[in-house]
Amino acid sequence: MGCTCAKQLKRPRGYEDPVALASQTYFSVSEVEALYELFKKLSSSMVDDGFINKEEFQLALFRNSKKQNLFADRIFELFDAKHDGVIGFGEFVKSLSVFHPNSPQADKEEFAFQLYDLWQTGYIEREEVKEMVLALLNESDMSLSDDIIEAIVDKTFIEADSNGDGKIDREEWKAFVARNPSSMKIMTVPYLKDITTTFPSFIFRSEVEDAD
């Protein structure tokens, strides 16, 4: 249809169809449009190229583009579904959808599992957990003795590694987070539920009416 083509031509580079993105996520069309306002801000903070690069992502999380952080790196890698070193608008919306309060618990659990499976072996291993604890301590400028760190890792495996093989598989992970819901709090971002009030500027620009 001529009308649709005209709209596509007007779309900035990298701006995927909000109707299509809404149909694949827990966001409405208006919310996808509101997320575009945020995406524009983040993707132009250093290089205005329509993509969020690693430094722009770090800048948004830490107000510092040079801050190295193991967890921010893992989140970036998971958002970058195409593995091309940058986050496009579609990748941004689809990944954020997992963090929506209405997103299913199973999707959140799977995302968190992949996040913590640093070496992508299909298991969360003891060495990975220890590395993450050390990274957290480093980030917080805290220091704990190796004995205490080992005790924290031991306690974690006693609670999570039900079959005692030294690694946490997906089934064990699901059972563990069911018993420890506080570990999954990071997987829900309450702002995503009222994104249109957080970024209201889209209202004056919306081209598409929500079907719902």
Binding site: L61, I75, M132, K155, T156, S183, I186, P190, Y191
Partner: peptide, 25 residues
């Protein structure tokens, strides 16, 4: 008596995992 947190509870306090900060102006 204080209860020791498990590693994932500790890790979940990382600022690098706090995506809410993307929305804070």
């Amino acid at each position: 008596r204080p209860v020791m947190m498990n590693a994932f509870e500790l890790i979940s306090t990382s600022q690098g995992l706090n995506l809410g900060s993307l929305f804070e102006k």
